[in-house]
Design a protein around this nucleic acid. Structure first.
Lengths: 141, 141
DNA sequence: CCAACTGTAACTGTTAGTATTACAGTAACC
DNA sequence: GGTTACTGTAATACTAACAGTTACAGTTGG
């Protein structure tokens, strides 16, 4: 899976854990374990999608502006990593003079479209709020 | 998705289409559109798993030895590409002094284990025989 | 023996992905 | 109004994964 998806989810969970609190890219990067520039890039997408608000300048940073129980992993997947299941490599060739070789691409493609739908359906059942709850549960043990 | 998975599926469908027929790695590679050495590597795995029989030497090649309706994509996935959904990249760090950062790895891991199970369940419903049928249907149109 | 294969391992080139650097733009604070 | 602390974004460097290829030993049939 795309690392940007993971950075996005982790950042949103972190922001959900500290509501109404501005977090800088440096703070988030330290928590996620990556470079601040990557965080800025990813959260830039989430801003355009309306999940977070940003403030530039001194004392600026990122803030959650959506209900954590109203953001599913499917939303983030579609935003950040859609099609990551679909193979980059293709077998066969439609021009080929063989029933199997010439139709394999389309059939294989249909299989992976179905797989992607199943994956999204699974992700649609998991919200950022639930992710935070699971983390809290682990802490209690 | 792993290209070896695709090569494996394509090769099995091709062999299922030509029952009792020995196909050389060169023939299969031409149909799949890759190098014979890759086909030999992939079909080597499928031999060890009991899907195909191989014969070395002159006139040798590969032959299907299992019922196409008895091989699912899930079997092949487990063999060739298991864990391909699981991200190679990990956020957070268990040593961290933050509830979110220290538990994220485990929670994220659980999410992807679930996703992998959903994916396998989907693949378990598709057999090599069905793949061949889908190709035949397309041909008629 | 020769020709046609598989089985493997090693090497190469290319692409994708992560980390890093750099700098312009913006806002708060003294 | 200048300094400081940020975001936004593009460019670059480094690394790992992957597909392609070459090479050769081992095997079998004629």
């Amino acid at each position: 899976m795309n690392s940007e998806f993971i950075i996005a989810v982790h950042s949103l969970v972190l922001l959900a854990h500290k509501p109404d609190c501005m977090a800088s890219s440096e703070e988030i990067a330290a928590n996620v374990c990556t470079h601040p520039a990557r965080v800025r890039k990813v959260l830039g997408f989430l801003r355009k999608s309306g999940y977070v608000a940003t403030r530039e300048g001194s004392g600026g940073g990122y803030r959650l502006i959506k209900d954590p129980t109203d953001m599913t992993l499917a939303d983030i997947y579609r935003e950040m990593a859609s099609g990551s299941l679909t193979p980059s490599w293709c077998s066969g060739n439609p021009e080929m003079d063989c029933m199997v070789g010439s139709n394999m691409q389309d059939v294989m493609n249909a299989v992976f479209c179905g797989a992607e739908q199943k994956l999204e359906a699974y992700f649609a059942e998991i919200t950022i709020g639930q992710m935070l709850s699971r983390i809290k549960e682990r802490q209690h043990v």
